[in-house]
């Protein structure tokens, strides 16, 4: 499903060259619950960005669902992300002026799905993340944990091939973290949704089914539990 082949990523600001990724090869299959771990600056976020088409590799290829995303134009990439990838961010990044329901519905509107389908799916997803009674609340009226659960529902709304989550529990307390992980694991197991995280949160690492450790831009270990 995701095939990363000999990926290199070098940042060059004209003075210093930073090699964020140095020849990474990895394959992630449908239904996996994978954590990419490593210390700060190890390259895990860069790897996630390259997989998500947010960053282009300096060298190598990234194939997602059979499409070499490195060859897509900017607009094609935006379209590709809309239809194939769900994103969950560390700081939730919900649209502040929209309610929980509208945030979840937002990507489906961009996909031009009809109202009945949008309503049905929004209700289902918000129920799945346990927020069916918070649908009309705006992000600033919800706790961090609740916002992150809305973010998960939003990520799933567009029916993506997989969900990329960049340190999704970094701003959550233990209870919210456990709650969020329960929801994501349940979605993974019951609906076969693929999750790929970058994290250095041991609570996430403990519950991940596969752990890829990155250090200095290279894969140090790849363990399937």
């Amino acid at each position: 499903m995701i095939k990363v082949t000999d990926i290199h990523k070098t940042y060059d600001d004209g003075k210093v060259q930073v090699h964020a990724l140095r020849g990474v090869d990895v394959e992630i299959k449908e239904g996996e619950f994978t954590a990419i771990v490593g210390p700060s600056g190890s390259g895990k976020t860069t790897l996630l960005n390259v997989i998500g088409g947010l960053d282009t590799p300096t060298q190598g290829s990234v194939s997602v669902s059979g499409i070499d995303i490195a060859k897509l134009s900017e607009n094609e990439l935006i379209d590709f992300r809309l239809n194939h990838i769900g994103f969950v961010f560390q700081s939730y990044n919900l649209i502040p002026v929209l309610t929980a329901k509208e945030n979840v519905e937002f990507l489906m509107l961009l996909q031009k799905r009809d109202e009945a389908e949008r309503n049905e799916r929004t209700t289902k997803l918000l129920k799945a993340v346990g927020l069916e009674d918070q649908i009309n609340k705006k992000p600033n009226e919800m706790s961090g944990g609740q916002q992150q659960r809305v973010a998960v529902a939003r990520a799933l709304a567009s029916k993506p091939d997989f969900v990329l989550a960049d340190e999704p529990t970094a701003n959550l307390d233990s209870k919210s973290t456990a709650n969020l992980l329960d929801i994501m694991l349940k979605l993974n197991e019951e609906e076969n949704i693929t999750f790929v995280f970058s994290t250095h949160d041991q609570r996430v690492i403990d519950r991940a089914k596969r752990v890829i450790t990155v250090e200095d831009g290279k894969i140090l270990s790849d363990v399937t539990k």
Binding site: D79, L82, N93, L110
Partner: peptide, 15 residues
């Protein structure tokens, strides 16, 4: 930042 997030999740720049 917000515009970056919107582009990341799939909202076209023209929109």
């Amino acid at each position: 930042f917000e515009f970056g997030v919107l582009v990341a999740i799939g909202m076209g720049k023209n929109k």
